[in-house]
Design a protein around this nucleic acid. Structure first.
Lengths: 109, 109
DNA sequence: TGCGAATATTAGATATAACGTATATTAGGT
DNA sequence: ACCTAATATACGTTATATCTAATATTCGCA
């Protein structure tokens, strides 16, 4: 077996993490994922939710698909997207938690 | 007091989160933060750790500083950086956990 | 087969990111 | 005052991201 240099190892890990974080590091995609964290949604629903052009949403979904973050299910013309990566899901959850733990100016008594 | 539209609220939250995630969504910065999560480090140490040019490291630190993720302390010519944002720290910790929970092909018996 | 609805893809414009090279700043020592 | 070490900034280049407008695909239906 191969001995991995600890720095190369760190680098490889950081690389994978950075790739996942890039998927999340966008307002519109976060909004979409927020909706998808509650279950499947059609493209149309995401278009209405975000207020973006259909093309833009489709491209964002393409980014998430390419990154393995989401998967699709087709029902006739409609395509239902869902979160398909455990890492993405857990990071997103952690994000939501961290978000909730924030003191919105006046929470600390 | 102001009534905030739930969608605007979501948008605002997503925006802040995306901004933080952008800070983390880079291999070199993740490596630096990994080091900083263990305590202060000088610029020079981060240069050696990452293998980047000094200028590049300084610019990355500038990004993190502008985003409020890190803060500096000066001791003579040397500047010691540290993580200065609780949200960043907790997201990074969550990231490390999620990273550890991964099965590197053969963990599930 | 021809049409409309839902979605994807392509092309092009603009913005932002990341890096290297070169230069500026700032503190300590001689 | 001068020199060096440690760090920051400016600038130019190349790559990547995101959006709009236009076009293509795919499915179900008359």
């Amino acid at each position: 077996m191969k001995h991995t240099d600890p720095i190369d190892d760190l680098r490889a890990n950081a690389d994978r993490m950075a790739a996942i974080l890039r998927l999340l590091a966008n307002r519109e995609r976060l909004i979409m994922l927020c909706r998808l964290s509650a279950g499947e949604a059609s493209v149309n629903e995401l278009v209405e939710l975000t207020g973006l052009a259909q093309s833009a949403v489709s491209q964002h979904l393409g980014v998430l698909r390419d990154g393995g973050a989401v998967a699709v299910r087709a029902d006739a013309q409609t395509r239902y997207y869902r979160i398909a990566d455990d890492m993405v899901r857990s990071i997103f959850d952690a994000l939501c938690e961290a978000c909730g733990e924030q003191s919105p100016a006046g929470t600390t008594p």
